[in-house]
C-alpha cells in the first residue's frame, strides 16, 4: 500500500495511522496529525485505518511569529 507522509511516498503494509507513525519513527514524539486534510486527534490514531493513496501530514512545534 502506498501512502504519502509530508509529501514523501512510503510503501507500507496495510495499517492504522498509529502503527504507520510508529514504523516511521514518530513513536513518543510530540506531533499532531491530519489525514487527507482532516485533523486526526491523537486518541483516534489507533482507530484510523489507512487507505492506498492517503496523504498524511505530521507536524511538530516550530518557531513562529
Amino acid at each position: 500500500m502506498r501512502i504519502f507522509v509530508n509529501g514523501d511516498q512510503h510503501d507500507i503494509e496495510p495499517a492504522t495511522l498509529a502503527l504507520a507513525l510508529d514504523a516511521l519513527g514518530y513513536g513518543g514524539k510530540k506531533i499532531a496529525t491530519a489525514v487527507n486534510g482532516r485533523f486526526v486527534a491523537a486518541p483516534a490514531r489507533p482507530k484510523v485505518e489507512l487507505n492506498d493513496g492517503d496523504k498524511i501530514e505530521v507536524v511538530a512545534p516550530m518557531q513562529g511569529g
Partner: peptide
C-alpha cells in the same frame, strides 16, 4: 509559536518545544 512538518528522524521541533 507555529507548527511545521517534521520527519520521524528529526528532533528539531522537540528541542524547540
Amino acid at each position: 509559536v507555529s507548527l511545521r512538518r517534521e520527519a520521524g528522524s528529526e528532533r528539531s521541533g522537540q528541542g524547540f518545544w
